[in-house]
């Protein structure tokens, strides 16, 4: 056990040994300050020593983290610290960037996502992504949501597809606003509606994990509140990772929080603990707004 590991957290009601047995995370030599959950969930995504290079420049240094199933994990940290970079590793969107190289291991449900046998297309269907800027396709609202199910052959009939589109839009709490104009272009919606459309589009392929990169950065407080509500509901069925610049948002929606700084994962732990008694000076400084 490394010195930095804070297993003596008071809230824990599970013996440390049990937690250790569940994950090798706490055996690893690492500078990250870690606090396990009081009731650990099984990890959906396991990342070990992930480093990312853009050309010769290293953007991420040996990040190791477990992302628990059916809960919300928030990534926070100052701009340029590598949150988006790490998020993009999880569904291998970094592959699409010229000159980007990833090392380390990432496993989804225990299987390596970099294994040659793994189909990246299937991975991205299981790990969906909502981008920082709403990016609806220049197609109708219906076609936007139907796009994923179509390419993955999820619907057997037109009625099936209609059903998927309707339920995805409902889950994204957009249905009432657009049910009469499904065949109008998705680009004609407001920014907040577009972002919910993008969430519906991601839900429609029924992924297991949804990655959200600052999904509310372009939205007003009301639209933000709706999306946060939505995230809260989605976590019943999905594992959610969200990047955010808003401490309040991280505190409101997430169960666990990870703090990145200069490409390092500085600290990760239960959200309430990170925000009340962070184990690292840098985390404390960032949360209280002293830098970043």
């Amino acid at each position: 056990m490394t010195e930095n590991t804070r297993l003596e957290a008071t809230e824990m009601n599970m013996p440390a040994a049990t937690i250790l047995a569940r994950s090798d995370l706490y055996h690893m030599p690492s500078t990250t300050v870690r606090t396990p959950d009081a009731e650990p969930r099984s990890a959906k995504v396991i990342a070990r020593n992930v480093s990312v290079f853009y050309g010769p420049k290293q953007a991420l240094f040996d990040v190791s983290i477990d992302i628990p199933e059916k809960s919300v994990t928030a990534f926070i940290g100052p701009s340029g610290c590598g949150k988006s970079t790490f998020l993009r590793c999880l569904n291998r969107m970094n592959d699409t960037i010229d000159g980007c190289r990833v090392s380390g291991q990432i496993a989804l449900d225990g299987s390596d996502i970099f294994a040659p046998s793994l189909d990246v297309v299937e991975l991205r269907a299981r790990v969906g992504m909502v981008f920082q800027k709403p990016n609806p396709f220049p197609k109708s609202i219906y076609e936007n949501v139907a796009y994923g199910p179509r390419i993955h052959g999820l619907a057997r009939s037109k009625a099936d597809l209609d059903e998927i589109v309707a339920s995805s839009l409902q889950k994204a709490s957009l249905w009432n606003e657009v049910k009469d104009r499904l065949h109008e272009p998705g680009t004609g919606l407001s920014g907040g509606q577009q972002q919910r459309l993008c969430i519906a589009r991601a839900i429609a392929v029924s992924p297991e994990v949804i990655l959200m990169d600052e999904p509310c950065s372009a939205l007003d407080p009301i639209a933000t509140a709706r999306i946060e509500e939505l995230i809260d509901e989605l976590k019943q069925n999905f594992t959610i990772v969200i990047v955010t610049h808003s401490m309040q948002q991280a505190a409101r929606v997430s169960q666990r929080t990870a703090f990145f700084h200069l490409g390092n994962l500085v600290e990760e732990g239960p959200t309430d603990l990170i925000f009340t008694s962070p184990g690292e000076k840098r985390t404390q400084d960032y949360i209280t707004g002293r830098f970043g």
């Binding site: 699409t96 991205r124 969906g128 396709f137 994923g148 390419i151 993955h152 589009r201």
Partner: peptide, 22 residues
């Protein structure tokens, strides 16, 4: 926009599907 392409790839579309459909 690159965002269109990323959006499609992020949904698990292949490169050729992305080209053809988006």
């Amino acid at each position: 926009p690159r965002a269109m392409r990323d959006g499609s790839l992020g949904l698990g579309a292949t490169q050729s599907e992305t080209i053809k459909r988006i």
